[in-house]
Design a protein around this nucleic acid. Structure first.
Length: 641
RNA sequence: GCCGAUGUAGCUCAGGGGUAGAGCACUUCCUUGGUAAGGAAGAGGUCAUGGGUUCAAAUCCCAUCAUUGGCUCCA
């Protein structure tokens, strides 16, 4: 019997039934066949060797396809497991999936401590097994047989996984001496795996639950070519150089100190300068958009957090209470309740709305010790916070304006890769994780979704990620070194107005609850500056650079002229200083280049005589000499955002 | 919080049972030099902290703290 195979370009070819994707590839060219890792058959990723029995849409997958890579790495995980099992008999296997870069396998090593010292041995074994070019063989297995196999093998984790599976959906894959419970698909044989590198080990809870046993997760990566592995390792090295923790130290942005405490960053002058720049930028933007600034204390009574409802939900993430005069006070972990109190302090009319309160509020959160990470996860943070109180009719416009503000900021900072993640509630967790008000959840989630759809903003919707008081949008960004995190957040709150009894008087002279929007587009100073360090690799645009220019006198003789230039620059609000050291110009230039200062002004006999400066741009080199006034103009142009 | 790794001068790191080393940075002196490192001298450390083993501990052991790769978490 013949079957028709339809290719992505629309071409259709006839093959005998039972032909595999690999056979089909071979019928096109041997070269293609050597590169085929898997195939998408009618939308599903299959083994390239699996026979196709009826008409199908076919896409051959190679290393250049995400699914091809995934299949490759998943097969590599099996190879890793085979190597580990042969080197350490008796180990118990968890799961071994592909990840964004490479793959891992969760292993219970029993009493043995598997460390990086053992990597070389494992890599060698994997190479040896790969060279055997063992085929990955797929077989359908009944649940009873599968249970029998893993009972015999004494593998509790696989048995647990089997519990959730039924007859007809259980398959085994076998390569060499290794058989694993696996849905597949896999690459044709192990010979495709040419370059192997174990990356690290880490503890990981079985099935991701803190309550379960912790297994050893072995991370590794493989490539079809040695050169690609070398490139990848080089890329990792480059990424290390852009790490905000390294740059933050080198550029004297921030530091930590044991006596101050973990997760409590100290901002050095350069960092504090950046904070000032960002803050004045935010203030200016927010003022234009009708925000009013407020200021609130860093602590508050327990009663407020009980009222806001934060305490029962977030107590674990707050610093423990202080006892004062028989009362309990908490360091604020969020600015919301304070702002709500300001809203509630005066009678509000519909004519006043929307009211927008903004504050770069300092908050303190007790993040678990293992969660702290440079500037990205800290315990004291200054948030670009604001709360908008509006009517239901105003909501859509206000929410859209906030989203537009996000997009504008992304443009200013050249953030091209981002994703809006729309987080909704999980109805099953109403009353526990979420305020128990199904109608309002449905209503507000619809409102947010409508804004996103109507304003054509690409987003993904995720259930069970909302804040306890309403749906939210998180903005995921990727730093230049591929690190992903939530930069900013935009939330709807229908619960706290009720809890704080906030209201305004509407046209009909009735009391009505405002809808509240929480927003923090510039994140916290901590996370945002951490992000910017990696994003720009420390080479900040002129307007953002803590030090914009350095004046470099050629010798001490021109110190006076250099000082004059320095003074003039400062008068023009340019962040400049004079390098007064008795060093050669070459040395001063090198140091300024290393410090990533955008402009270097070399001044000597010629410049002193003509009243000019010789300008050098960081990373570019000598721009020639120009009048000081022209240089000032140049910077002022660069200062415009 | 959990599993693993790490902690030596301001920074980057070497060393290692017999009371500490390099480079850079810093200070002083010499040099006054035109677009990525001029020279010399000097100063800097209870080797994270606390305990234990030992004639002797920075080194070995234990605990704690901190950082870190992950896991869990992230208002």
């Amino acid at each position: 019997m013949q079957i028709s195979i339809k290719f992505p370009d629309g071409a259709v070819r006839e093959y005998p039934s039972g032909t595999s994707s690999l056979d089909i590839a071979r019928s096109i060219s041997e070269g293609l066949a050597r590169n085929v890792l898997a195939a998408r058959v009618n939308g599903q990723v299959w083994d390239a060797t699996r026979p196709i029995q009826s008409d199908a849409d076919l896409q051959l997958l190679t290393w250049n396809d995400t699914d091809g890579k995934k299949t490759y790495w998943h097969s590599s995980a099996h190879l890793l497991a085979e190597a580990l099992e042969s080197l350490y008999p008796g180990i118990k296997l968890g799961i071994g999936p592909p990840i964004e870069n490479g793959f891992y396998y969760d292993i219970d090593f029993g009493d043995f401590k598997f460390t990086s010292d053992d990597f070389a041995k494992v890599e060698q074994k994997m190479n040896e097994l790969a060279r055997q070019e063992s085929a990955f063989k797929r077989s359908d297995v009944s649940k009873a047989d599968a249970i029998a196999y893993f009972t015999e093998k004494n593998d509790p984790y696989k048995l647990e996984l089997l519990q959730d599976l039924n007859d007809g959906e259980i398959t085994f894959y076998e390569q060499g001496n290794f058989t694993d419970l696996c849905r597949g698909p896999h690459i044709p044989h192990t010979g495709f795996i040419k370059a192997i590198k174990l990356i690290s080990t880490a503890g990981a809870y079985w099935r991701g639950s803190e309550k379960n046993k912790q297994l050893t997760r072995v991370y590794a990566i493989t490539f079809p070519k040695k050169s690609e592995l070398d490139e990848y390792l080089l890329m990792l090295e480059e990424a290390k150089k852009r790490d905000h923790r390294k740059l933050g130290k080198e550029l004297e942005i921030f530091t930590f100190d044991d006596d101050v405490g973990p997760g409590l960053p100290l901002w050095l002058p350069n960092g504090a300068q950046m904070i000032e720049i960002l803050e004045s930028f935010a203030k200016k933007t927010e003022k234009e958009q009708g925000y009013q600034r407020v200021k609130t204390p860093h602590i508050a009574r327990e009663s407020m957090y009980l009222k806001s409802g934060h305490l029962p939900y977030y107590k674990d993430s707050m610093f423990p209470a202080m006892e004062i005069d028989g009362d309990r006070y908490y360091l604020k972990a969020m600015n919301c309740p304070h702002h709500h109190k300001i809203f509630g302090a005066l009678p509000r009319s519909y004519k006043d709305l929307p009211i927008r309160f903004a504050e770069y509020g300092t908050c303190y959160r007790y993040e678990q010790s293992g969660e702290l990470f440079g500037l990205m996860r800290v315990r004291s943070l200054q948030m670009n916070d604001a709360h908008i109180y509006c009517t239901e009719e105003q909501f859509e416009q206000e929410f859209r304006k906030v989203n537009e503000l996000y997009l504008r900021y992304f443009q200013v900072f050249g953030i091209e890769k981002y994703r809006m993640r729309f987080s909704t509630h999980d109805p099953a967790k109403l009353g526990q994780k979420y305020i128990n008000n199904p109608e309002l959840w449905a209503k507000t989630e619809k409102m947010v979704r409508d804004v996103l759809v109507n304003s054509d903003i690409p987003f993904v919707e995720v259930e069970d990620e909302a804040a306890f008081y309403g749906p939210k949008i998180d903005i995921q960004v990727w730093s230049a070194i591929g690190r992903e995190f939530t930069l900013a957040t935009n939330q709807v709150d229908f619960a706290q107005a009720e809890r704080f009894d906030l209201s305004f008087v509407n046209e009909k002279n009735e009391r009505e609850r405002p809808i509240i929007i929480h927003r923090a587009p510039l994140s916290t100073h901590e996370r945002f500056i951490g992000f910017l360090l990696e994003h720009y690799a420390g080479n900040f645009p002129v307007w953002l650079a803590p030090r914009q220019a350095v004046v470099l006198p050629i010798s001490d003789k021109f110190q006076e002229y250099a000082d004059t230039v320095g003074e003039m620059l400062k008068k023009s609000d340019i962040r400049a200083f004079v390098d007064e050291r008795s060093e050669k110009a070459g040395r001063k230039i090198r140091d300024a280049e290393v410090a990533k200062i955008p402009y270097m002004l070399v001044v000597g006999e010629r410049e002193a005589a003509s009243g000019e400066v010789s300008v050098r741009r960081h990373g570019q080199g000598d721009l020639g000499s120009m009048k000081l006034s022209d240089f000032i103009e140049l910077i002022e142009k660069g200062n415009k955002i």
